[in-house]
């Protein structure tokens, strides 16, 4: 699942509905503990508002093991 696959909604009730719709994926262990995050629309799609969600979406900002962070 990528950020590009995300649905954006504006109302709290719609967010709750999105979470409710993940029930089957949770039961099938495809998703663990889903939650809604705040995003804003950027030139290249949706962008999480918080640094936490940006890092969660893009991965660590530092090299680790043999991996280098995305530019």
């Amino acid at each position: 699942m990528r950020l590009g696959d995300a649905h954006d909604v504006t109302k709290e009730t719609e967010a709750e509905e999105l979470i409710a719709n993940t029930e089957a994926d949770v039961a099938a262990c495809r998703v663990v503990e889903p939650y809604a995050m705040t995003v804003e629309k950027a030139a290249r799609g949706l962008k999480p508002v918080s640094q936490r969600e940006r890092i969660r979406a893009r991965g660590p900002t530092v090299p680790y093991g043999h991996h280098k962070p995305r530019a």
Binding site: Q51, R52, I55, P60, T61, V62, Y64
Partner: peptide, 17 residues
């Protein structure tokens, strides 16, 4: 820090670096 940890509020490693 926030590069890996679920509890963190901010990054630690790049600050150290």
């Amino acid at each position: 820090g926030l590069d890996f940890c679920n509890l963190a509020n901010a990054r630690s490693i790049p600050v150290a670096q």
